[in-house]
């Protein structure tokens, strides 16, 4: 039995003739301590998949098992880092994290909670901005708050929904390293949803492409056999990296083409000739 199991998941939005099947026949097994990345085109149903795993949505059919138990609701054991940060805009950085800590550790002392909040703010290097509101922070800083909030709840598994999608390349690189070091330190299980193949290869043990929706389903998995810690600068010359990267991109291109050829209806164009003006 795997740590997280998705068995024959189907997810449909709408009813009757208006129903669109977003996900079909999703099967995914993640072992404890593993770092898995799911790569897919935008609009392929990635966020739906994440929400099924974290318990915000229920599958139309099939089951999501977490440590052998079916997922029916959200849980503190699975921390979520949302794509659009989702901070509470009227609270400061400290308060945003403190709300989460209070919910997870209701019985601990105030002192304990306070040190915990401060520790995680320190961890994502936001101590100077501790009393600022999200509106006063840059995108990268907001995402760091979101990461700190998810981690401060001490989840056994971290689910990341395109956490770095909206950030610039430099901030992105830094945060990738930060997430990796946190994952490595506590050996948590991690699921990363991304549209960046390089990011997936750099961070994950396995990459699974999500074939584009509607009727999105998971493609064959690609194992990343590169030793950790991985060096970003050397990675570009690694033959294993190049090969995996080419394989995945080739696969994605293929299904991308499939999508365009299958969905295109043929339009009959009128026979018109441009008029010549002499």
């Amino acid at each position: 039995m795997a740590y997280l199991e998705l068995n024959n998941i189907y997810k449909t939005y709408g009813k009757g003739t208006n129903a669109t099947e977003v996900l079909s026949n999703i099967n995914l097994h993640i072992e404890e301590g593993e770092f898995v990345a799911i790569v897919g085109f935008s609009g392929s149903g990635k966020t739906t998949l994440v929400n099924l795993i974290n318990g915000l949505l229920k599958p139309t059919s099939g089951e999501v098992l977490f440590k052998g138990q079916p997922v029916i609701d959200t849980s503190h054991e699975r921390g979520v880092i949302f794509q659009n940060y989702s901070l509470l805009p009227w609270l400061t950085v400290y308060q945003n994290i403190s709300v989460a800590v209070k919910e997870t550790f209701p019985k601990e002392s105030k002192q304990f909670r306070d040190t915990r909040v401060k520790k995680y703010i320190e961890m994502v290097n936001l101590t100077p901005a501790i009393h600022k509101r999200p509106g006063e922070l840059s995108g990268g800083m907001r995402q760091r708050v979101s990461i700190a909030r998810a981690l401060a709840m001490d989840p056994e598994m971290i689910i990341m929904d395109e956490p770095l999608g909206a950030l610039d390349a430099l901030t992105r690189g830094n945060l990738q390293d930060e997430i990796l070091s946190i994952w490595d330190e506590n050996k948590r299980t991690a699921l990363l949803i991304t549209n960046d193949v390089d990011e997936g290869i750099y961070m994950a043990d396995r990459i699974i492409p999500l074939r584009p929706g509607p009727n999105a389903t998971l493609g064959p998995e690609f194992k990343i056999n590169i030793d950790r810690p991985r060096d970003k600068t050397l990675l570009n010359d690694d033959p294993e990296f190049k090969k995996t990267r080419n394989d995945i991109i080739e696969y994605l291109m293929e299904i991308g083409q499939e999508r365009t050829t299958t969905s295109a209806t043929e339009y009959i164009l009128p026979e018109l000739e441009p008029r010549h003006f002499d």
Binding site: L56, H76, N84, S86, L88, P89, W90, L91, V99, E103
Partner: peptide
């Protein structure tokens, strides 16, 4: 998104109203 946060943090119904819904509709 904000309601999703409330769900993920597992806020109770009263907490949800006073900590999330009211401040955001203020």
């Amino acid at each position: 998104d904000i309601l999703n946060v409330a769900k993920v943090l597992k806020l109770g119904p009263l907490q949800k109203v006073f900590k999330v819904i009211l401040p955001s509709s203020l």
